[in-house]
């Protein structure tokens, strides 16, 4: 039997495959197509304290091998989430990772307090990386002290594992992983989407109502893999990697680069039945390579012959 479980601080996930935030609704929407208890975790759509309306359409546009989104974090707010969605997620034995967003440090702390008292939350993912909203969030994620401050403030008020989600829209993402680790983060997740835009040349209008949006999907995968690799060389805490994963091979690539677990977002839009295919593919790979435990794979990239070239290029 291959052991697919992985460890994030005090939390054991039954496998390393997690549904990415904002790409899986509140999880309950998908209960009809996938057994939620089969997933390593379900990261629910980013939640603020209060409900939010989000941006007007158009909210997404397809781009080569990817998509831009500017949803604007439409959501029901933390209280309705706890009352209306969490009970069903609990009944379906989902491992729930709640993605939280705040405009101020106090809002993150307040959200963490409220969710720590709710039954059925496995971990908190701090969204300090959403490129689509003006206030808060990203301002923490783009400043090393901001990242450090929000992680340490949340750590003080919750027993839950705390996972800051990092933005790739910085020069040196590894330094943000380091700041997170120093502040006591149990893991980091990366990457959120890349700030991008697309224009209709006939009308000269931006294709998104928000003008700019976040790029996700296969187009970003090689950059995301590189960023996970850099972070693995910098921090010891677990890394949850994501960005364009659409097959077991893609997931394995992230793990070999240094991820302990992975999240899958855009690919779930294309194939909502992807989850068992990913798990089967990983099991098959581990079997073929005689690896008993998936955690042995993390960071096993073999750079002995290539290291010199990579550094000098």
């Amino acid at each position: 039997m291959t052991d697919l479980s992985i460890q994030i601080g005090p939390l054991t996930l039954k496998n390393p495959i997690i549904a990415a935030s904002g790409c899986f609704g509140y999880g309950v929407e998908y209960a009809g197509v996938v057994d939620l208890s089969l997933l390593g975790g379900v990261a629910v759509k980013g939640l603020f304290l209060a409900p939010r309306e989000g941006h007007p359409p158009e909210r997404i546009v397809e781009t080569p091998a990817g998509m831009l989104n500017a949803i604007g974090l439409q959501g029901i707010g933390v209280h309705r989430f706890i009352a209306e969605k969490l009970p069903e997620l609990r009944d379906r034995r989902a491992t729930v990772i709640v993605n939280i967003c705040g405009s101020t440090l106090e809002e993150y702390v307040e959200l963490a307090r409220i969710l720590s008292d709710a039954e059925g939350v496995a971990a908190l993912e701090l969204n300090i990386s959403c490129p689509n909203i003006k206030e808060g969030g990203i301002t923490f994620g783009c400043s090393l002290t901001g990242t450090y401050d929000v992680v340490s403030a949340v750590k003080k008020v919750t027993p839950l594992p705390v996972i800051p989600k990092l933005t790739p829209n910085v020069t040196d993402v590894a330094s943000f992983a380091r700041a997170s680790e120093d502040a006591g983060a149990d893991a980091v997740s990366l990457v959120n989407t890349f700030l991008a835009m697309a224009i209709d040349v006939e009308t000269r209008r931006p294709k998104l109502s928000n003008i700019v949006g976040g790029l996700s999907g296969p187009a970003i995968r090689p950059i995301a893999v590189r960023m996970v690799y850099e972070c693995r060389r910098t921090v010891k805490i677990p890394i949850i990697g994501m960005g364009g994963i659409a097959s077991a091979t893609d997931a394995l690539e992230f793990m070999i680069a240094g991820a302990d677990a992975v999240q899958v977002g855009t690919a779930n839009f294309v194939d909502p039945f992807i989850w068992t295919k990913l798990l089967d593919g990983i099991r098959d790979y581990l079997g073929r390579h005689n690896i008993a435990r998936v955690r042995e794979l993390t960071g096993t990239i073999d750079t002995t012959a290539r290291e010199k070239e990579w550094i000098s290029s």
Binding site: E29, V33, P272
Partner: peptide, 10 residues
């Protein structure tokens, strides 16, 4: 984007 309520685009 997805048809199943996952993406909040439509």
């Amino acid at each position: 984007g997805c048809g199943l309520g996952g993406c909040y685009s439509c």
